[in-house]
Computed example of a mutant assay.
Amino acid sequence: MHDRIERVTGATTAIALVAAAVLLAPAFAGFGASLALAVVAVGLTVLAFLAREAIRTLAPVPWLQLHFETVWVGAAVAALVLVAFAGVTPAELQTLGAVVGLLGLFNYLLRPIYLTLGSVLTRVTK
């Protein structure tokens, strides 16, 4: 159970951080959210999905391979945010990117609670 919790929380955190990076990069370049930027994010999603095995091999250690493989999901999340908040200013897009990144970090910080709950559930169900 602990391995599954580690994998899910790690992958979720990686997805949120990639989405934050995809949102923050254009915002710092002075671009607000638009449908054209969402199309670019969808293109990045498709490219990352098609190259996920090649991206996975770039991981320097085996436990990072899952996180490298899920990069495409982060780009897809960023595309959804761009569509949902189309028309916001670059500063507002920076805020959205920061919130997405903070959600990922908050998820990572909750790992001890997830592991404790997993241990309790494992003991109760046995």
Rank of each mutant, 00 (worst) to 15 (best):
S34W: 07
R56N: 02
A21M: 11
A16T: 12
L64Y: 15
V40T: 01
L17E: 03
G87A: 06
V46L: 09
V18G: 01
G118D: 13
A27C: 13
G87T: 15
H67Y: 12
A29W: 05
W63Y: 13
F85K: 12
A84K: 04
A19P: 10
L103G: 13
L103E: 01
S119I: 07
L96H: 06
T70W: 13
A86L: 11
L117Q: 01
A86F: 06
V73S: 04
Q65H: 09
D3I: 14
A25R: 11
A14I: 04
R111E: 08
V8H: 00
R111M: 06
I5G: 02
A33V: 04
T70K: 05
Q65I: 02
F85W: 12
N107L: 08
T13A: 13
G87Y: 08
G118S: 08
L115V: 11
T57Q: 10
E53M: 04
A16D: 07
A84I: 10
I113Q: 07
T13S: 02
Y108G: 07
A29C: 03
R4D: 13
D3K: 14
A54S: 03
T95D: 08
A41N: 03
A11H: 06
R123Q: 02
F85V: 12
V22D: 09
I113R: 03
L105F: 15
L17H: 11
F49H: 04
A33Q: 01
E53T: 14
A25W: 08
R7W: 12
F68K: 11
I113K: 04
T57N: 09
L109T: 13
L105S: 09
R4P: 03
L115G: 05
T89M: 04
G101M: 11
A11D: 15
E92G: 03
H67N: 04
L24A: 13
G43R: 09
L103Q: 02
V99Y: 04
A19T: 05
A86P: 14
A51Y: 08
A59F: 07
R123A: 06
V8C: 00
V81R: 00
L110F: 15
L110H: 15
F31G: 05
T70H: 03
E6R: 15
A20V: 12
W72R: 01
F49I: 03
V71N: 12
A16I: 14
G74K: 01
V22T: 08
T45E: 05
K126W: 14
Y114Q: 11
L24T: 12
P62H: 15
T12D: 13
G10M: 01
L24N: 07
A54L: 14
H2F: 15
A75H: 13
V61R: 15
L115W: 04
G104A: 03
T95P: 00
Q94H: 10
G101C: 05
G87L: 05
V8Q: 03
S34P: 09
P112G: 07
T122I: 06
Q94T: 06
V73C: 02
P62Q: 08
A29H: 12
L115C: 05
T95I: 14
A36G: 15
S34D: 05
L121I: 11
L47T: 12
M1I: 09
P60A: 14
L23R: 00
L103R: 00
L102S: 15
A76M: 07
P60K: 07
L80P: 02
V99P: 00
N107G: 05
L24H: 07
L103Y: 04
F28L: 14
V100I: 10
S119F: 09
E69Y: 11
L23E: 01
R123C: 02
I5P: 11
